[in-house]
């Protein structure tokens, strides 16, 4: 049912806010159907990058291509139409709606019918609504949130809201899924569930997953490629094993002094 994952090419993306450079020449490629993580200390530019990728920020320079189509300059709803789905950092639900209605909003772009079609119950609008509900139930079952559908979204516990958020992003039928800290604030056993969920999304639906996450165990466990950002610049991109031993990455996380210390302890023979 789903289109295969998209290739994401980010080239030379630079974002400036009133003189502060949030992103500077960021370049990397996420291959179709892979899990690609973006990590970095607080303030490294991860959230800015996600806002560029979902059309909220317009970068000063650079290009972002999804399977070759330029994304920069498109309004957010057109970015969604390009096949980019996004789950949010704080799992923000539309509080006045039920879980099912929240998921149905993921289908908004794929549905049909305006004011007149809805108010007069025209057949094509009713058919579109029926299809949307069926798809939403299917996505909800895939992520194990189907028992929550009738609940008001405002009553969801945090962990459940995060899963519903991912389900809502999946309901848009993305070819590229942006996950903004999916495991933030979760217990250990919930993190295991998140890890399995992300793996299943990439494996069973072949969707490209771009992941921002602080939990290194999670990132290194599931990602094929990791891009490390620091001060808005790419420090390195590579498989998890190589990234963790990269001097520049250690410097970014532990500070220059930490890296120097590590280098010293390695260069000096044990006495």
């Amino acid at each position: 049912m789903t289109a295969p994952g998209a290739r994401l090419q980010v080239s030379d993306v630079t974002v400036r806010f009133a003189g502060v450079t949030a992103l500077s020449g960021v370049t990397f490629t996420a291959e179709p159907g892979t899990i690609h993580a973006v990590i970095g200390p607080n303030g490294a530019g991860k959230s800015s990058l996600f806002n560029v990728l979902s059309g909220i920020y317009k970068p000063a320079e650079g290009s972002v291509r999804v399977d070759g189509s330029e994304l920069i300059g498109l309004a957010p709803h057109r970015v969604t139409a390009l096949g980019v789905g996004r789950a949010f950092q704080n799992a923000s639900m539309f509080a006045g709606l039920t879980v099912e209605e929240n998921l149905l909003l993921g289908r908004h772009r794929l549905g049909r019918g305006g004011v007149f079609a809805a108010g007069l119950r025209l057949p094509y609008a009713r058919r579109s609504e029926r299809e949307a509900r069926a798809k939403v139930r299917e996505v909800a079952e895939f992520l194990g949130v189907d028992h929550l559908l009738a609940l008001p979204a405002a009553e969801l516990p945090y962990g459940e809201a995060k899963r519903v958020d991912i389900a809502r992003a999946l309901a848009t039928e993305p070819r590229l899924l942006l996950l903004d800290e999916p495991a933030a604030g979760m217990h250990t056993h919930e993190k295991v569930e998140v890890r399995d969920t992300i793996r299943r999304i990439a494996a069973e639906r072949q969707i490209t997953v771009l992941l921002v996450e602080h939990d290194m165990g999670l990132v290194m466990g599931i990602s094929e490629q990791v891009t490390v950002l620091d001060f808005g610049q790419v420090v390195t991109t590579g498989p998890p094993g190589r990234v963790t031993s990269d001097e520049a990455v250690i410097a970014a996380y532990l500070g220059r002094a930490g890296a120097a210390q590590k280098a010293r302890s390695e260069s000096q023979p044990p006495s």
């Binding site: 979902s54 059309g55 909220i56 309004a75 957010p76 709803h77 970015v79 969604t80 139409a81 996004r86 949010f88 923000s92 639900m93 539309f94 509080a95 006045g96 709606l97 209605e101 909003l105 993921g106 908004h108 772009r109 809502r168 992003a169 848009t172």
Partner: peptide
């Protein structure tokens, strides 16, 4: 309702 409860998120889900 989505615009009322969070317009940025509504836009990111494809709502004009």
């Amino acid at each position: 309702a989505a615009i009322r409860d969070g317009e940025v998120h509504a836009a990111a889900l494809g709502v004009r």
